[in-house]
Amino acid sequence: MKAKSHINKVFLGPPLFVLAVLALVPTIAAIIISFQNKELGRRGTSFVGFENYINLFSDRRFSNAMKVSLQWEAITVIGTMIVAILVAILLFETTRGRTRAIISTLLIVPVLLPRVTAAFVWKFMFNPLLGVINYPIKELTGAPIEFLSNIQTALISVAVVDIWQWGLFFAVILLKLLETLPKEPFEAARIDKARTWEIYAYVAIPMLAAPLISLTFVKMVESLRSFDLIYVMTRGGPGIVTETLDMYAFNQGFVESGRISYASAMAVLMLLTTIITFTVLFKWVRKWQTA
């Protein structure tokens, strides 16, 4: 027992130390700065209490960013999971052996691309003049759709890239999970007159509930970190239609006004919201799973 607890420390120590330096220090710094009135290009700072936070609640651009972030989470998480499930089932039903292995490998490629690369590739594809996506649209309707500069389509178009990367990757994971399921419950369901979609909806997917929930959590966390994708594709535009919280914080802190403290307050709020949301979700899921 004693030796075991000792080994715990040996293994946990170094990563915890690295984590403390890399994560804890900036986090504490951000919290401190958020209570100040630090600005880039201006000397002298003082503590201003909750002023930054109070200002945020009357900032309509902040509430817009909040809304965009929520939309982004919802679209990319739900979109990824739906695409993953549908593609996995399609492959499970229609392919086998080598074909399946080759397609699986191809589906993993998008997520292997650095996100900035993926963003540029799609930015070119969406391009109204040169883009391959707009080519047939121009042929058919005579006018291109400006996917990334249209208020209606900008957020969705960026989300498509995210779903393309992660949905297809998750599809491969799901396909492998489907392969591990025992085949008898599927056969029992066929004898029980279940149609193909019913077998998946009522038997296969529920049997994969636990890993599906884990994947959803992974994607939720991952979607929070989509700054680089949005930055390359739209920079939050047109206007502020695709300006998520991190994008707005970045704009406030470094691009437009250099209001570091104001941006830090946003970051701290994001941190709190994320911690609370995920804690509640985790608890809720655990309760639901044991029930």
Partner: peptide
């Protein structure tokens, strides 16, 4: 299988686990 009027019992039960 569903159209044959058969019911089957499997070696490893094959119940729907959830």
């Amino acid at each position: 299988p569903g159209e044959r009027g058969v019911a089957m019992v499997f070696q490893n039960y094959a119940l729907y686990p959830h």
